[in-house]
Write a protein that binds this DNA or RNA. Structure first.
Length: 415
RNA sequence: GCGAUCGUAGCUCAGUUGGUUAGAGCGCCGGUUUGUGGUACCGGAGGUCGCGGGUUCGAACCCCGUCGAUCGCCCCA
């Protein structure tokens, strides 16, 4: 026998309860985004590599070691999308969506990052994504976060808190970064190996290092607050005031920095509370939804300065938190007691489905065992068909839909 | 890229200090019973014990390598 090829490492075949939970997340997202008038967009799964390398930043982990890149037959370097935002920004520029600005967009689908898989983390994973493009005012941040908050609530997810920070505007961030580099360089030898590396590549990250050697050198004098320009401070205050008005709970997280270069001002993550049930279900992964403002991104792709803010959430991680979802209950099984009645049974099950009844046909295997198999499906009703046609129903509960279908049918030969 | 743990039937798992022909439950197929809302019983198919090498009279079991999975580090959703 030929050998079955293996699935690619880090990909998943989702089925059963997990697939139901996955679908529930997507359906709930679709419902909620409509409440906020986010418009659905469909995006390519791959782009020219430069879309991501320029937008996300060459030195980020995502670009430097996690992209699935390949040359196509024309020799052009393409990359399977590792995130949504860069591709959406490219689409916004190449399609002239400025005409719709400010525009609220939502999408979902697969993303790809070359990483070692572990709990809640895959090479092909899935996100839901929401962006507001062309809106500079803090109210956009508030609306976006209110939607995220409502989504999590409607998914029934508890024990998760919005962690909020500001990275300031360009000037604030630059001053902050310079101060951090100066500070940490003076104690470089005492930092962890990882953080000595971060010092060159991404000094902001040292702030949220878990290594005690690094923690020793981190204190509140290094928070962004001291470096914020008046404008940046005012912006953040308006965001937090808006969240309070909208009834969205949040907590300040001064060491929260996002990994990608394009973030400005607001940065946030929804994180399970320590010791909560949600935290346990997620393993060592913590962030279930994250994002921020990226006013500088469009320029890196050659567009005009365009303020924008967005977030993405891992569908798999959300699905781990929503609990068991059962498929809709089977309402009717048409049981073929004798194969001579097969045509009649097929007609009956078709009529039931057209009448909005969730129905299945049980007509395979040993005729004597069909009844047991039907019962195992736990249907609300069983309709029996033999060589004389339909001849009986048993079950309990509301049968009005089934009765309506039966009374609209041509009388079976027996009646 | 690094580390830990683990690979036995379609699935979940037993398998004694290394010892005859590797087992169970579930699922699948067939039959007997029952005779119409989850019956009981009998039987059957299904395994290169992840793969390759080594030690041994003898390896699912010990050793080495390799592939894969899981969890963690890094980073992220």
């Amino acid at each position: 026998m030929a050998k079955t090829p293996q699935a690619i490492r880090g990909t998943q075949d989702i089925f059963g309860a997990d697939a139901e939970a996955f679908a529930f997340v997507v359906e709930t997202f679709e419902r909620v985004r409509k409440l906020y008038r986010f418009r659905r967009v469909e995006m390519p799964v791959f782009e020219k590599t430069e879309v991501f390398s320029r937008a996300i930043g060459e030195t980020t982990d995502v670009v430097s070691k996690e992209m699935y890149s390949f040359d196509d037959r024309g020799g052009e370097s393409l990359t399977l999308r590792p995130e949504f935002t860069a591709g959406i920004a490219r689409a916004y520029l190449s399609n002239g969506w400025q005409q719709h600005a400010p525009v609220k967009l939502a999408t979902h689908g697969p993303l790809f990052r070359y990483e070692r898989p572990q709990k809640g983390r895959y090479r092909q994973f899935h996100q839901i994504d929401a962006e507001i493009i062309g809106a500079a005012e803090p109210q956009a941040d508030v609306e976006l976060l209110a939607m995220a908050d409502q989504l999590l609530k409607e998914l029934g997810i508890e024990g998760v808190t919005l962690h909020l920070n500001t990275l300031g505007d360009g000037d604030s961030r630059e001053a902050w970064r310079a101060a951090l580099v100066e500070h940490f360089r003076s104690v470089k030898d005492e930092l962890s190996e990882d953080s000595q590396e971060r010092l060159e590549k991404n000094p902001l990250r040292i702030l949220d290092s878990k290594d005690p050697r690094d923690r020793k050198h981190v204190d509140h004098t290094l928070d962004i607050d001291r470096f914020l320009t008046d404008g940046a401070k005012r912006f953040f205050d308006e965001v937090t005031a808006g969240l309070d008005a909208a009834g969205v709970k949040w907590t300040r997280a001064p060491s929260l920095v996002r990994g990608l270069d394009y973030y400005r001002h607001t940065a946030f993550e929804f994180i399970p509370d320590e010791g909560s049930e949600a935290a346990g279900k997620l393993g060592s992964q913590s962030t279930i939804l994250g994002g921020g403002r990226y006013d500088g991104l469009m320029e890196s792709l050659g567009g005009a300065l365009t303020p924008a803010v967005g977030w993405a959430a891992g569908i798999e991680r959300l699905a781990m938190l929503v609990g068991e979802r059962m498929p809709e209950r089977l309402e009717a099984v048409v049981l073929v007691e004798n194969d001579a009645g097969m045509a009649e049974a097929i007609e009956l099950v078709s009529d039931l489905r057209r009448g909005g009844v969730i129905a299945d046909l049980m007509a395979t295997g040993s005729p004597k065992k069909r009844y047991d198999k039907a019962v195992k499906q736990n249907p609300q009703y069983i309709l029996r068909v033999d060589d004389g046609g339909y001849h009986g129903i048993s079950g309990e509960g509301d049968a009005s839909k089934i009765v309506a279908v039966l009374s609209n049918r041509n009388p079976s030969p027996r009646t």
